[in-house]
Design a protein around this nucleic acid. Sequence first.
DNA 1: TGTTATTTACATACATGATTGTATGCTTGA
DNA 2: TCAAGCATACAATCATGTATGTAAATAACA
Lengths: 203, 203
Amino acid sequence: MARKTKAEAAATREALLDAAEEVFYEKGVARTSLEQIARHADMTRGAVYWHFRNKGDLFMALLERVRMPFEELAEEAARLNADASPLETIRLACHASLQRLEQPSYQRILSILIHRCEFFSDINPLEMQNALAQQCFDDILDHFRRAHELELMKEGLSPELAARLLQSTLGGLLHDWLRDPERYSIVRDGQQLVDTLFTLMRR
Amino acid sequence: MARKTKAEAAATREALLDAAEEVFYEKGVARTSLEQIARHADMTRGAVYWHFRNKGDLFMALLERVRMPFEELAEEAARLNADASPLETIRLACHASLQRLEQPSYQRILSILIHRCEFFSDINPLEMQNALAQQCFDDILDHFRRAHELELMKEGLSPELAARLLQSTLGGLLHDWLRDPERYSIVRDGQQLVDTLFTLMRR
DNA sequence: TGTTATTTACATACATGATTGTATGCTTGA
DNA sequence: TCAAGCATACAATCATGTATGTAAATAACA
């Protein structure tokens, strides 16, 4: 093999990440070697070690390729018509987040992060999940607080409890669906679930 | 080392399982070797290979030591006073299930199954989780159907949706808590969450 | 009941394969 | 010409599975 242009090198880097995504998804992170990834991209381990320091570095690069869905929940909510009620804003943001999950790339990477990797080297996927969940919770809570001030929510339902209820529901749905994404549509069933919950929580 | 009596041999088997539970929990399944388990129990790999065929066999034996919490949800419900309403029965069964999780053994093994192991050999933890979730769902749905016939639930809330809502909530809570069990009490926060949901779903 | 034979319940040793990190070589674009 | 962008080669480690050794518990037997 000969030397390639900068664009070609960047392309092989992407190809390696694509290959890693596929093989990680199929076999799990721990049980895939760097050579399996390289060969899946029609390369050798030399290319992998040129672009990445090691498996952990490759893994982090993989996660950085897509932004996490719930990380953008607040942005989605803000992008929607701002004159809607806070409850409607959260509900629509949930819908938008669910639609994100239909993209295979999101689904595969979340599945890798949640179901297909244990600790390794200095990377702790549970801490990363915790950080995402915490940020999601803060965003949701913020909107519920405003909804509460406007007396939109059922009496006796505190913003904190509402936020925890919604986060648990979304998290449970996500985990359940990711275990076998072919079983049902996350958008259809998820939106129905979210709508039901909001109907119950609305005054 | 010399030969031991049958009782002593059974004790070392339990000690090996205890060691596996601890080391799996601390380092994840993939990154712990059989020798690490053996040395943690003050044994050698010879003992491990005597009592178990391989790592997968050891893992399965570990899971069989405790019954899964939601597997007994129905039994718990039946054990409680049968003259309570179906909704109360499910709610109390949820409480009992949450209390199960406070036992360190349950917490650790569920955490291993959910967060600390990928595929390996012929064992697929995701399928095992799916089986547990499906059985839990069926049990819950059964009770909600009866509650629906008695017109105990909010109008427009089908038993199927109610069951999915409760299952998602419980699953989301479980996953969130298992990521960092020291953060809050699963019994206190979980029961509050469940009670809130039932208040919303009750007519 | 005492003696012997045979398993049991491991420990130890060994062979093998897999994976990793690095070192080095090679080709060509800039 | 030089170094980017890989491929190839090498050394070292690690985990696994199996084979073998062995002391004592237990069974067999007289």
